Simulated assay, not measured.
Amino acid sequence: MTRRFTGWHMLACMVGFFGVVIAVNVAMATLAARTFGGTVVKNSYVASQQFNTWLAEADAQQKLGWKAEAEAIDGRLVIGAQSATAPLTGARVTAVAMHPLGRAADIPLAFNEAEPGRFVAATRLPAGRWRVRIRIERDGRAADYLRDVAA
Results as ranks from 00 to 15, higher is better:
Arg3Glu: 14
Ile107Asp: 03
Arg138Tyr: 06
Trp130Asp: 03
Gly80Leu: 12
Ala56Asp: 07
Ala47Ser: 07
Asp148Gly: 01
Ala68Asn: 02
Val41His: 05
Ala68Leu: 10
Arg76Cys: 05
Arg147Phe: 09
Leu77Ala: 10
Ala29Arg: 12
Val20His: 02
Ala68Trp: 01
Asp144Asn: 15
Lys42Gln: 15
Leu64Met: 04
Ala81Val: 12
Leu55Gln: 14
Thr2His: 09
Ala27Arg: 09
Arg138Pro: 06
Ile134Cys: 07
Leu88Met: 06
Ala122Lys: 11
Leu125Val: 08
Glu137Ala: 12
Gln61Ser: 13
Glu69Pro: 00
Val93Glu: 08
Leu11Asp: 02
Glu137His: 02
Ala151Ile: 03
Phe111Ala: 10
Trp66Ser: 04
Ala91Lys: 04
Pro100Asp: 06
Cys13Arg: 04
Val149Glu: 06
Val24Thr: 10
Trp66Phe: 02
Arg92Ile: 13
Glu71Tyr: 08
Ala29Met: 09
Arg138Ile: 14
Leu31Val: 12
Ala58Thr: 01
Leu101Asn: 13
Thr6Pro: 06
Ala32Val: 06
Ala122Gly: 09
Asn43Ser: 10
Ile136Tyr: 04
Thr30Glu: 01
Met28Phe: 12
Gly128Met: 05
Ala95Trp: 06
Val96Phe: 00
Trp54Phe: 11
Thr94Phe: 01
Met28Asp: 07
Ala95Asn: 04
Phe111Cys: 10
Arg118Val: 14
Val46Met: 02
Met1Leu: 10
Arg3Leu: 14
Leu146Cys: 03
Val93Ser: 03
Cys13Gly: 01
Ala150Met: 14
Arg103Thr: 15
Asn52Pro: 00
Gln50Ser: 11
Val15Pro: 06
His9Trp: 05
Ala151Ser: 15
Arg129Phe: 09
Gly140Met: 09
Ala121Asp: 08
Val15Thr: 15
Ala12Gly: 06
Ile107Cys: 06
Met1His: 13
Asp74Ile: 06
Arg135Gly: 00
Trp8Thr: 05
Ala70Trp: 05
Gly37Glu: 09
Arg92Tyr: 07
Arg124Met: 14
Gln50Gly: 01
Asn25Arg: 08
Gly90Trp: 04
Trp130Asn: 06
Gly19Asn: 06
Arg103Ile: 09
Trp8Met: 01
His99Tyr: 03
Lys67Ser: 09
Glu69Trp: 07
Val46His: 01
Pro87His: 05
Arg76Ile: 04
Ala58Phe: 03
Thr35Ala: 04
Lys67Tyr: 01
Trp54Arg: 07
Val41Ser: 01
Arg34Asn: 11
Gln49Cys: 00
Glu113Gln: 13
Asn43Lys: 03
Leu31Tyr: 14
Asp59Glu: 10
Gly7Ala: 12
Asn25Trp: 08
Ala105Leu: 11
Asp144His: 12
Thr94Lys: 04
Val96Pro: 02
Ala122His: 03
Thr39Met: 14
Val21Trp: 13
Asn43Ile: 12
Ala86Phe: 13
Arg92Lys: 15
Ala56Trp: 00
Tyr145Val: 02
Leu101Glu: 12
Asp148Thr: 15
Pro87Ser: 08
Arg141Pro: 01
Phe5Ser: 08
Val26Ile: 14
Ala122Thr: 10
Ile73Trp: 04
Trp8Tyr: 05
